[in-house]
Computed example of a mutant assay.
Amino acid sequence: MRSVGKRIIGTIPVLIGVVLLIFIMLRIIPGSPAAMLLGEHVDQATIDRLTEAMGLNEPLPNQFFKYIIDALHGDLGISYKYDRPVTEMILEAFPYTVVLALMAAVFAWVLGLLTGIAAAVRQNSLVDRLFMGVSLMGVSMPIFMTSLLLQYLLAFKVKVFPLTLDGSFLSMILPAIALGWNSAGSVARMTRSSLLEVMQADYIDTARAKGLANGAVILGHALKNSMLPVITMMALQFSSMLSGAVITESIFAIPGIGRLATSAIQNRDMPVLQGTVLFTTVLVIAGNLAADLLYSVMDPRIRKEA
């Protein structure tokens, strides 16, 4: 518990640094949010009044510390575009992102583990080359290309799935595959390499010398010890799916955190953009912490060192 507390405390400077960075970047961009909201042909006096009402005329240090204090109380500001609390908007969008990330993670992990194990068992065979070639394609293809290709083939041509989100479970399958395809390739390659490395250990030879079948040796001895780096990768992947589904949500019209962030960028809605960045940063940090904890649970040596 002490090591967990140290890790949580260590994340505080990271959060403050991320907020400070996005805070500065949004305010050095040319142009005024008030002017963008009011549109063209508005006199400067009106722009100045709105700027003062939004609190953007105060010194930057005052704005920053006020934002930090409000964020600690769960207040991420009011959207410039929609005049709604940012926290409320994020909480409305988050369930869509969670469902998408969960479906993508299940697809990626099941496909990645099965193909990685099969490739390791059939090392240097046609199956191994085929699976690793497909996994390399998955790792190499950008998410936007995978998304558009799936839309064209399975939604536009074959018409098996809806083109965009329509509220049904079926309409979430294509986005989940698109988001999880890259992760599936990474899991497959990591599983294969880790399993092959473990299978060279002396205790594997001892198990085989006792007369155990190859399947029993792999499932009972090699697989458990080879899963340590894979589980760490899977935990990090899930947090990145939660925070990085921007492209997938935009292409498939899913009203999640990613689409909320892109809309905030287009509208220069600084409170919404700051809130989504802070929220996704917390998710990534939580994913890293979960990966560390899972690793220590799976490997007692890590607990002793901690």
Rank of each mutant, 00 (worst) to 15 (best):
I143M: 11
G258S: 08
S250R: 12
M145K: 05
T11G: 12
I218M: 14
L236P: 06
M103V: 10
M36Q: 12
I257K: 02
I68H: 09
F169Q: 09
N124T: 10
A253D: 10
T11I: 12
L76D: 01
G39T: 11
S183V: 14
T146M: 14
A105G: 06
L196Q: 10
L130T: 15
S263D: 12
L154H: 04
H41Y: 14
P229K: 04
A216K: 15
I204D: 02
L174T: 03
K159L: 10
G31A: 06
D43L: 04
V106A: 06
Q274S: 03
A35C: 10
V42N: 04
G112K: 03
E305N: 11
Q44D: 14
Y295G: 12
A286D: 01
K224L: 09
I302A: 09
A216S: 14
V198N: 00
A118H: 02
L154D: 02
T232V: 13
L114Y: 12
K224G: 07
I143T: 15
Q200R: 14
I231N: 03
I22P: 01
S32T: 05
V297M: 15
L21S: 07
A108N: 03
L136D: 08
L154F: 15
I117T: 10
R259N: 09
L60N: 02
G17F: 09
S263H: 05
V99M: 13
P271Q: 01
S243I: 08
S32R: 02
M233G: 05
G39E: 10
F169K: 09
V187F: 10
F144N: 03
G256C: 03
I69V: 15
I12Y: 08
I68A: 04
Q200D: 12
L150P: 05
M141R: 02
G74F: 05
G77V: 14
V158H: 08
A209I: 10
L37F: 09
V160K: 06
A118V: 11
Y203W: 07
T206M: 14
L26W: 06
R129Q: 13
I254D: 00
L219T: 11
I28P: 00
V198P: 01
F23R: 06
A290N: 03
L91D: 07
N267Y: 09
I143S: 15
N57D: 15
T248R: 01
Q151N: 05
T191Q: 13
I9Q: 08
Q151S: 07
L293S: 05
A261N: 09
E249H: 03
I28M: 12
I251F: 05
M36W: 05
L150H: 04
A207E: 13
L163E: 08
G211I: 09
M270G: 04
F107A: 01
V282E: 03
V86W: 02
I9C: 06
G275P: 01
A184R: 00
L130F: 14
A118W: 05
T97M: 04
Q123D: 14
T281H: 04
E88S: 15
G116I: 00
I24R: 02
K66A: 15
R49H: 10
L242I: 06
L273A: 08
K81R: 14
P255C: 04
S243R: 06
I173N: 01
L196V: 15
I78S: 07
A176Q: 04
G55I: 09
L20T: 07
F156L: 13
V19E: 04
T115F: 11
M103C: 13
A105W: 13
M172D: 00
D43H: 07
E52M: 12
K210N: 08
